[in-house]
Design a protein around this nucleic acid. Sequence first.
RNA 1: UGCCGGAUCGUCUAAGGGUAGGACGACAGAUUUUGGUUCUGUUUGUGAGGGUUCGAAUCCUUCUCCGGCAACCA
Length: 569
Amino acid sequence: MSEIPNNTDIRTPAPAERSLNFVEQIVEEDLATGKNGGRVHTRFPPEPNGYLHIGHAKSICLNFGLADKYGGKTNLRFDDTNPVTEDTEYVESIKADVRWLGFEWENEFYASDYFDQLYEFAEKLIQKGLAYVDDSTAEEIAAQKGTPTEPGKESPYRSRSVEENLDLFRRMKAGEFPDGAKVLRAKIDMAAPNMHFRDPIMYRIKHAHHHRTGDKWCIYPMYDFAHGQSDSIEQITHSLCTLEFEVHRPLYDWYIQQLEIFPSRQIEFARLNLTYTVMSKRKLLQLVNEGHVRGWDDPRMPTIAGIRRRGFTPASIRDFADRIGIAKRDNLIDVGLLEFCIREELNKTTARVMAVVDEKPLRVVLTNYPVGQVDEVSIENNPEDPSSGHRSVPFSREVYIERDDFMENPPKKYFRLSPGGMVRLKGAYIIKCEEVVKDNAGEIIELRCTYIPESRSGSDTSGINVKGTIHWVSVAHAVEAEVRLYDRLLTVEDPSAEEGDFKSFINPNSLEIVRAYVEPTLKAAKTGDRFQFIRKGYFCIDPDSTDEKLVFNRTVTLKDTWAKEQKKA
RNA sequence: UGCCGGAUCGUCUAAGGGUAGGACGACAGAUUUUGGUUCUGUUUGUGAGGGUUCGAAUCCUUCUCCGGCAACCA
């Protein structure tokens, strides 16, 4: 009777009949033509240099979802070719985030697993006369590159012999040269219209400790020389990445072709953009480092960790990824869709509880209710789920309500309490406001009301019909709690469309911490538990919560058509 | 000015010569002991011009607009 059901993670229901996105179309064509022997093998390739965000979640759902759908496999591969920026700390958080989203990988691989193989590939290209060691400085190489409209110039070191290149490259590997002294470049075409073909760098010297290979290497492959080959080594059939890699694809294909290895196919899709936030690692890092948020898992952040702490569920993120679709045009998704997804799930799964979220709630004294009497009223845990049952909540002569639920001079169509008006206290009785008590400053400090004894919920014989029902908490039984109310991080929909630094659009009111008085059953709540505060929104227990002090995060508000009407007026 | 992409309701996303459909949002109504939920209904779109065709969002053509590409980052 007094149990509050736990939230459980419901899997996304069987997908409704839906048309195929362009990646699925490609896969189905490949399957139909027998390409790759009917195999589908994808990979999710994060660089372990930061935390995952909801944009990565889109990619994770695409890659793992595709494999699930077509009976394939997905590898988790860390693209760890730059030891200077990467760290094991990120590896662990990334794995935790992928698992939290509900996916399990076939293999856990690292680009660094292939360093020996990649090195052999590089020697092979040297042997074929397709790569050379260049002594130019970074600046010189940049200058040689030309511009998008002007061809580049060939490096003076471009015509070294195969033997000399081999010798130099081996000595680079052996650590004979300092950082930046030399690079290995592919010998392609300095006049190519695609900038990436203008003798791209394959290897650079970095005397740096690698999180996995330690000090074994002092030369590290560049992205372009590692990614396609890694895909190929793993026999990845469909290598999905975002649009900015589109111009890399010819080079991806070129290396595979010259090396004569398994031809993985790169397919690009548009990355996710969300309104009122930023998604780039660099900008998120700035928010953290400059203290605009409390950390990577700040509930205002679009990181997986932040969203999780905010109270979102894995299923709601998967549902969101499903709804936004996959295409190649640039997009800016309304964050309202994400909110819709979480509301839809939480509506079905969370217990409704009473919480008066107000620094200074209004005390309501029921003058005709016996002093000292406590009624246990029965409240439905979740009207959407009859199996969730009921629990009892103490009711007494004095209750708190929110100040917003009373107006001395109410506008038309205000259904809450007002002088002489009636309202139902959810799950309890109908009350009538008889007297408004104010202090010397004219501030309302108390409402003196009468209750209708025959109107008790479930056995109402009063015949009275009231328009409004409000939530309440018995003063004597109320548990004080901290509630963190979050709003959008930025004040503008699309910071990229605005002049100036995105930080000038940070919403100063994105976090509001308020006191609340909650029903006593919540004392037993544990970190991560989710609830609907009746008429307010969905909330979850934050990890900062302790036995002495409950801390709630507001995941999302309930839809509020009254507030919307007010705004219009 | 070079190369590579892209352009369909307000926002996403389908339809690839044959009725422009779905989701979210918005609006209106019904139900409701949450101004929640649920249900019903409505609204709005093929960037522009020309061409092919009985028929074009789809094919051809000219143009416009938007994004990406010049890290020893990924």
